[in-house]
Write a protein that binds this DNA or RNA. Structure first.
Lengths: 249, 249
DNA sequence: CGTAAGTCAAGAGCGGTGCTCACATTTGTT
DNA sequence: AACAAATGTGAGCACCGCTCTTGACTTACG
């Protein structure tokens, strides 16, 4: 559980502060349930108030407005996804980069299919009129891509990332972006692999979004698991990851 | 312009029917503007009625409800995107499959960046409580993927689609899906290439969605055009497309 | 031509939403 | 006990989707 951000660093929390924190937690929990059931656009403060057993205007004592609750739910969802992805990646041997990549992809997909409405809030069309406060959401919101980039950088430093073939080149303006990213994140991955990593990143979420949002026609792919496994394998190749040592080899 | 679906095949339209059709067109046009400005979830029949200079209940004479208007706008957007993609692909020589693929991707991205809210309606998180009527939207909604698949199939039949390398395999249940798709659409592309085509399809929209929905952090990629061009080149390779004859070679 | 059928705009109204505000109540502290 | 802060209440505003009735109008037909 993250500590409340506004807690002063010295005093222990008073009972009232504890009760207040608990109420906010309840509001977020109820909001999460409504979000999961009816989607982001249908999230209603009045409904949350009803479930909380309180009059509608009372929740404004705890949450500034609907946007604020959306922000809390956004951070909540980002962190839950980040936790599951981190755990899935950490469950594999440190040297099994291809396996870690597969685990990352599988973890994101599993969470997305389990929480489609929350996934839509994070990675779907932006909620109209709502702009996520960058200073509060970038941290949790970048956990997955940080895990992916760390994975690729570790593989590269371990000599497990193959140089790409193909006809794609990295134009100069793009190289400038990549150099900035590399220095900001302390990476060693060279441009062609880093650019491919960006593509793999967006492609992973593209495949998951198509499945979660029902962009494939209904019944087009009955073997959704196998389709995603195939895509993950291709994307792993695309990133330059060599599969770990052959089984029983 | 597609003819109105409910027109009887014999009688010419009466003035009343013409006026009615014009009013519906106006409603769709105004709805398109509201959609583009404020997003799908904020689309309001009352606001459309105000812009139309009519009382709110009057629009229900022409449009059954909000969902119906959303459906009309969905079809409208799918067709506009499909028209632009078809035109972009058709502008290239029939044998330049790699160029056609690039043109397809560029056309989708251009439309998406020009019409982010409408793109979000088509490819973003589904509108809560709204289920698109399959019988009316699958036709327009599959135009882009049909164009992509036709492109790949044509390239394969012309011997311009290279067999893929890598470690990915097509599991048996997935092969059954692909076989069904192949027979339904009359394709010749074999499983590994068809599965890769599906990945290229989702990856293309993944890259575009990330850009349109602002999933890249602000300022992460200043060279958005070059990034997308890179991705298109890699995805073309991934699909198996060989670049057209070297320039001046 | 006159009447009946069909069509349409208008307005009231229902229940829902986000949000604000004045007021009452509870609670912790002095 | 008294006070002040925190919290809950209910009314109210403006908006939303949607329904229904009413009156006016257009069209078609006898």
């Amino acid at each position: 559980m993250p500590q409340t951000a506004s807690t002063p660093p010295v005093k222990p929390p008073t009972p009232r502060q504890r009760a207040r924190a608990r109420t906010i937690e309840d509001i977020v929990r109820l909001g999460r349930e409504h979000l999961a059931l009816h989607g982001a656009a249908a999230l209603s403060l009045r409904a949350v108030a009803r479930d909380l057993g309180v009059v509608s205007s009372a929740v404004y004592r705890y949450v500034e407005n609907r946007e604020e609750l959306l922000t809390l739910l956004l951070i909540d969802a980002y962190n839950e996804l980040g936790d599951e992805v981190d755990a899935a990646v950490a469950a594999l041997p440190a040297a099994d980069f291809a396996g870690q990549f597969r685990a990352l992809g599988v973890a994101v997909r599993r969470w997305a299919l389990r929480e489609p409405a929350r996934y839509g809030l994070l990675f779907g069309s932006p909620v109209p009129g709502y702009r996520a406060p960058v200073e509060r959401t970038t941290g949790p919101g970048t956990r997955v891509v940080y895990a992916l980039v760390a994975l690729l950088d570790g593989a590269y430093r371990a000599g497990h990332l193959a140089a790409p073939g193909g006809h794609a080149t990295v134009a100069a303006p793009l190289a400038a972006d990549l150099e900035r990213i590399r220095s900001q994140m302390g990476l060693a991955v060279p441009d062609p692999l880093l650019a491919r990593g960006a593509l793999v990143w967006t492609s992973l979420f593209g495949a998951i979004s198509f499945e979660v949002f029902g962009q494939y026609g209904a019944g087009t792919f009955a073997a959704a698991d196998e389709l995603f496994a195939h895509h993950l394998a291709v994307l792993g190749d695309l990133a330059g990851l060599r599969p770990a040592g052959r089984r029983a080899g």
